[in-house]
Design a protein around this nucleic acid. Structure first.
Lengths: 119, 119
DNA sequence: GCGCTGTCTAGACGTTCATCTAATCAAGCA
DNA sequence: TGCTTGATTAGATGAACGTCTAGACAGCGC
């Protein structure tokens, strides 16, 4: 269950803040893919719930917090998984998810403002 | 030309890193709107070009760097503008754009990993 | 005024996305 | 084995999105 389709290695070339240097087309495509994973209210809240849980969290504890159906949650979790933002493991009847902080760190670095020296 | 539709004030409630606390629905909607603005390769590259320019940059210097039409660039710039990521001003014949780093800082904070203490 | 250049707006069109229901798969238990 | 619960996959549908062409607007120079 560890199928990440975007590895951090493939995009290490754009780990420079965008205020430092412009991204090339390839980096932009890969970066946009990750942002797209967070560009939905349900997924962004899913990500924050999983990330702030402090430990792995069961799908059965996540689904009741949303107004959408189970399959929809499952779909969104898959998108987050394919973006390399979370990973999961089935343990018995339940499936547990946890965050992959490296990806968050990478995004945070990409968007960071190095020197806020206002002119 | 300073119509930001999302002010930073309206979303200050979610300036806590998502690893610290889960977002509520409202914050998730507003956050997702900003991420959506960066969730397209053209817009992400636009943002990086404007942000890394060091100063304001003319649309006429931006458009030639892309393979899409002028109106398409104009459309994407409008999305970035409405997300509060850039602002612009017409000066004579040309229109100049510059980044609004506060928004980038806000996103970066949202995604930051407070204590990378790996278990 | 008139034409030229740069940019944006309007509308159309094809694609992608979010969501649902129904069906399937996985695991536990009587 | 068969039933029950939890989660995912498959397929369909309506909305949103990215792009284009055509047209409009703003400013400059003759």
């Amino acid at each position: 269950m560890s199928k990440q389709e975007l590895s951090i290695e493939t995009v290490d070339g754009c780990c420079v803040p965008i205020m430092d240097a412009a991204l090339d087309s390839t980096a932009a495509v890969e970066g946009a893919t990750v942002f797209k994973a967070l560009a939905d209210p349900v997924r962004l809240r899913l990500m924050s719930i999983i990330a702030s849980a402090g430990a792995e969290i069961c799908v059965c504890d996540i689904t009741p917090q949303f107004d959408v159906s189970g399959p929809t949650i499952s779909h969104h979790l898959k998108v987050l998984r394919e973006a390399g933002l979370v990973d999961c493991e089935r343990r018995g009847t339940w499936v547990y998810y946890w965050p992959l902080p490296e990806r968050l760190t990478w995004l945070s670095t990409l968007l960071s403002v190095p020197t806020p020296a206002t002119t």
